[in-house]
Simulated scan of single mutants.
Amino acid sequence: MTIRVVVADDQELVRSGFAMILDVQEDIEVVAEAGDGAAAVAAVRRHSPDVALLDIRMPGTDGIEACRAICAETACRTVMLTTFDADEYVYEALHAGASGFLLKDVRRDDLVHAVRVVAAGESLLAPSVARRLIEEYTTVTARQVPVAAVLAAAERLGALTARERETLLLLGRGLSNAEIAAALVVSEHTVKTHVGRVLAKLGLRDRIQAVICAYETGLIAAGSPPAE
């Protein structure tokens, strides 16, 4: 199965370089390139790719707005490209539906691996890294979220069983499937089933979105210590 990719970056050399690296892979095809967010959204609508690589900072429609539109309208998964590992827009991009992040100086092999991982339905960040990253941004932005929005988010948890809530809690703490299995004394296969049901019931795309949900619903308080 060929992974279809759209690459969007306003810097032509960066865009073309990424496209060339990906297009020579036997299992990856770059179906379109775009120089801004609006063109990226149009390309995704036209070509129905599996993955879109989006520069966060582009003129006009930026990568975050493009990500939001793509995730709302299509099944395409998005990976954000950024120059800084502490980009101020990271949390906003996660909330828009991004499945992960790459620095623009990423190594060739890591770029290819990232596209394959995201296309397979996984998040690009390791759970523990995602938890720390999201904790940082939710701590900063928590006071900006309206109380009504927090209450509405918390009500979503009512759809979960007690075991599914426990699974979401452990996801939010950054535990891997193996670690969750050990904590719940069940098999990893059972954990995968629980995780799948949590994502489906809450309308979440991946583990990153589950971590965000755990914080936004108050299941985990921002500033909680990392899981050991």
Rank of each mutant, 00 (worst) to 15 (best):
V185G: 00
T74Q: 06
D105T: 12
A38G: 13
T61K: 14
V31E: 08
L219T: 12
V14Y: 09
K201L: 13
M1S: 14
D62V: 02
F101G: 01
A126K: 11
C213P: 00
A142K: 01
A200P: 01
A69F: 03
L168M: 03
D85A: 12
T83E: 12
H194G: 07
E88P: 01
R45G: 15
G35E: 13
E33N: 08
G63V: 01
V90L: 10
H95K: 10
A142V: 02
G37H: 03
C213L: 15
L170W: 05
A152H: 02
A120I: 03
L204W: 03
V140R: 13
A38V: 12
G158L: 09
L199C: 06
D109S: 13
A227M: 13
E164A: 04
E179W: 01
A43G: 10
I70H: 03
Q144R: 11
A148P: 00
A153Q: 10
G37A: 07
A182F: 01
A98L: 04
R108E: 15
G196F: 00
A98N: 02
L175K: 07
A162K: 06
T74H: 14
R207W: 08
A75Q: 14
A34N: 07
L54W: 03
K104I: 08
R173P: 00
L171Q: 08
V195H: 03
D9R: 03
T61I: 15
V195P: 07
E12V: 13
A142C: 09
V31F: 12
D50P: 07
A96D: 05
R143S: 11
A142T: 06
Q11R: 14
A214G: 15
V24H: 09
V106W: 05
A75K: 15
L133A: 00
L94Y: 14
E33F: 00
